[in-house]
Simulated scan of single mutants.
Amino acid sequence: MSTDWPYSEEQRDFQRTLARVQPALPEVDESGAFPWAHWQAVGRTGALALTSPETGASALDLVAAGEALGHGGCPGPWWQSLLVIPVLEDAEAAMAGEVVVTAGTADRVPWAAVAERVFELGEAADRSWLLRPVRVAGVRESWISLGHEPVLAGDLVGDGPEIAVPARIELLTKLGLAAYLSGAGRRVLTDVVAYTAQRTQFRTRIGDFAAVAHPLAECDARVRAAAGLSRRAAAVLDEAGGGAGESRSVHTALRAAAAASREAVYQAHQAYGAIGFSQEGPLAWLGQRVAQLATDAEDLARDAVLVAD
């Protein structure tokens, strides 16, 4: 197996396309309205169909897309779509971003109110993943999550037989989330470094102070390492014949991406100061979204499926 995992020119073109369809970070929308225009634009690129076997996409294609989507702060149920779409019999509309599909537990179902299909995520006795078609009934409460996603909490009523998730789809889903977090961490650092090059104290750019520059440099190394681990895990999935090595590589990448992106946000808050904590500030979208998705990643990396109790 290769020891280097550079993107092909086609994969870099794909990333540039995704950057064009989501040119600016989304703004915080307290209304909880679904970002249809953004989601459909991403869907038209094929980025929502990358875990479907019929597309012929490689794991490295998925990682390239995930990094670009994370860098742009793509809203919507990204990793849930990667998980659900491959098991649907009629997935064309979901692949195109024309409808929303989602998955969660009774205590957290993001975007359930607008989703065409909702699934409860659980585990079989052998720890493989199961998806149970459900509808949300007896809603106890609804709120906007830390990741800016409307969440319904209530009773999930079965609406069909359980579906076993193929092991490869599970691993690709986790890998897509890892790549998204790496891309988001890189965007956080890119933006805060630009800020520290302009903001001055005592007639000196704050980026020239060691107390600011050194932690950001360390974060940059961690985010780059996490991205490299995701690419390595993709290479394992694409080239290996299967086995425990695939799972270890993916879970290592997922843990690294969650930790690195969290640390990037923390250090960015230190550099931005008070404006980093405001809803109008530069971290309003990505900072909170990283916090939510890193929590998801940590749960998935433990193979504990979003168990709320």
Rank of each mutant, 00 (worst) to 15 (best):
W5V: 11
W5K: 03
P6A: 09
Y7N: 06
Y7M: 06
S8W: 03
E9R: 15
E10C: 04
Q11P: 11
Q15A: 13
L18R: 11
A19D: 11
A19N: 13
V21F: 05
Q22D: 07
A24L: 10
E27N: 11
V28N: 09
F34C: 01
F34G: 00
W36Y: 05
W39Q: 14
A41M: 10
V42S: 08
G43S: 08
G46I: 06
A49D: 09
T51I: 08
P53I: 07
T55H: 06
G56E: 00
A59Y: 06
A59Q: 05
V63I: 08
A64Y: 01
A65S: 15
A65Y: 06
G66S: 07
E67D: 04
L69K: 07
H71K: 07
G73S: 05
C74F: 06
G76S: 04
W78V: 14
W78C: 09
L82T: 11
V84L: 08
I85T: 14
P86Y: 02
D90W: 00
A96S: 10
V101R: 04
V101P: 04
T105W: 06
W111E: 07
A115I: 10
F119A: 03
F119M: 11
E120C: 14
G122Q: 10
D126G: 12
R127H: 15
S128V: 02
L130H: 13
R132M: 09
V134K: 01
V136W: 01
R140V: 12
E141G: 13
S145T: 07
G147C: 08
V151T: 12
V151A: 09
L152C: 05
G154I: 04
L156V: 10
G160N: 00
E162V: 14
A164G: 08
A164N: 02
V165W: 00
A167P: 00
E170A: 14
L171C: 07
L172G: 03
A179L: 01
A179C: 09
Y180W: 15
L181Y: 02
L181H: 03
S182M: 01
G183W: 02
G183P: 07
L189D: 03
T190S: 08
D191H: 12
V193D: 11
A194L: 02
Y195N: 10
Q198G: 05
T204I: 15
G207H: 02
G207S: 05
G207L: 03
A210Q: 10
V212Q: 11
P215L: 12
P215G: 10
L216H: 08
R222F: 05
S230W: 00
R231V: 01
E239R: 14
A240Y: 00
G241C: 07
G242T: 08
A244K: 11
S247H: 10
S247I: 13
S247F: 06
A253V: 03
L254P: 02
S261N: 02
E263I: 03
V265H: 04
Q267A: 08
G273L: 02
G276W: 09
F277D: 06
Q279T: 13
E280T: 10
G281P: 09
G281K: 07
L283G: 10
W285A: 06
R289K: 14
V290A: 05
L293C: 08
A294R: 07
T295C: 12
D299G: 14
A301F: 01
A301M: 11
R302S: 14
R302M: 14
D303Y: 10
A308R: 13
